[in-house]
Amino acid sequence: MEHSQWIGKTQDRAEVITEANAARIAATLNEKPPVDGEALPLLWHWAYFQDLASTEALRTDGHAKTGDFLPDAGDRTRMWAGGRLTFVKPLVVGKRAQRSSTIQDVKEKQGRSGSLLFVTVRHEYLQEGEVALVEEQDIVYRAVTKAVVGEGDPLPDAEWSEEIDASPTMLFRYSAVTFNSHKIHYDWRYVTEVEGYPGLVVHGPLTATLVMRAFCKFAPDSVVRSFAFRGVRPLIAGDTLIVGGRVIESGKASVWAGNQGGVGQVGEIGFD
């Protein structure tokens, strides 16, 4: 099947936003867990609606084999490149939610490491028949080549910032709570010997969640309306993770994450 023929494919899932799973995320992030009836903190929804592929259906990198909902990417490894989210209303803990997903775009491009397959998936999350969250997720598949982790742009001047120990333990627990079996986050031998990183790679969604948390601490009375982010450089466990940002105009903040080697993720938050 041509990659373009995957555009428009859909998938529907439903599950309860359980208090128990929210408590596991809270423990991973050293946060107070929300209880039934309370709002799920922003971006914690990534711990729900997971692909429950059997162990025998996983590829050598730990991801589920493609070719069902997502386009067939062969033996290329998968990375979460970024995304865009619109927050309509909070997801509520203890209530059933639905996610409707659609393949929005598929493109093949040539990069420095060879052919890259870009897939954009649009998700709509609903509770009680009303849309709570709309998300566009950018996934990139690339050939398994030795990764290059160079220096990034210097961290910008920040209006707020926070240093976080993104330890292997935190990465392992986040992988567990999001049911993410990608080996670059927990398998030292695989990530260093096969993919060529200098250490375990911090999850893009985990990084984005920590960036969002830092903003919400800075502006606790603000209502976040949108968030767009993209990875620009891998961030490695063991290096102190620095998240921060600054308000650049009314209702808009520039945010980022990085380490002493430079910026690794950039984003923008829209808020009231």
Rank of each mutant, 00 (worst) to 15 (best):
M1G: 14
H3K: 05
S4R: 13
Q5A: 13
I7A: 07
D12W: 00
D12E: 14
R13Q: 15
A14G: 10
I17A: 00
I17R: 07
I17H: 05
E19F: 03
E19H: 07
A20M: 09
N21P: 00
A26C: 08
A27E: 12
T28K: 02
T28G: 02
L29W: 01
E31I: 07
P41M: 11
L42E: 01
L43Y: 02
W44I: 13
W44N: 09
W46N: 10
W46P: 00
Q50L: 02
D51R: 12
L52T: 13
S54Q: 12
S54P: 00
T55E: 14
T55H: 11
L58E: 04
A64V: 03
K65C: 07
D75N: 15
D75G: 07
D75P: 06
D75L: 13
R76T: 10
G82W: 02
G83Y: 06
L85T: 12
L91I: 12
L91W: 07
V92F: 04
R96F: 02
A97G: 05
Q98T: 15
R99A: 15
S100A: 14
S101C: 06
S101M: 08
T102V: 15
I103R: 02
E108K: 13
E108I: 13
G111T: 06
S113T: 15
G114H: 09
F118T: 09
V121F: 02
R122K: 14
Q127G: 08
G129Y: 12
E130L: 14
A132E: 03
L133F: 11
Q137V: 13
Q137E: 11
Q137F: 01
I139Q: 09
I139Y: 10
V140D: 07
Y141F: 15
R142D: 06
K146C: 03
G150F: 06
E151C: 00
D153Q: 14
P154R: 10
P156M: 05
P156G: 09
D157I: 07
D157P: 04
A158M: 02
E159S: 13
E163G: 04
I164S: 01
D165W: 00
D165N: 14
A166I: 13
T169F: 11
L171F: 06
Y174G: 03
Y174C: 05
S175R: 13
V177R: 10
V177N: 09
T178I: 11
S181K: 13
W188D: 12
W188K: 10
Y190Q: 10
V191L: 09
T192Y: 08
E193T: 09
E193Q: 15
V194E: 14
V194F: 05
Y197K: 05
P198Y: 03
V201H: 02
H203R: 07
T209S: 12
T209M: 12
L210H: 03
R213Y: 00
A214H: 02
D221T: 14
S222M: 08
V223I: 14
V223R: 15
S226F: 05
F227Y: 15
R230K: 15
R230V: 00
G231N: 09
G231A: 15
R233K: 15
A237W: 01
T240W: 01
V243C: 08
G245Y: 00
I248R: 06
E249Y: 06
K252Y: 04
A253N: 01
A253Y: 01
V255N: 05
N259E: 04
N259H: 03
G261L: 09
G267T: 01
G267R: 04
I269V: 11
F271S: 00
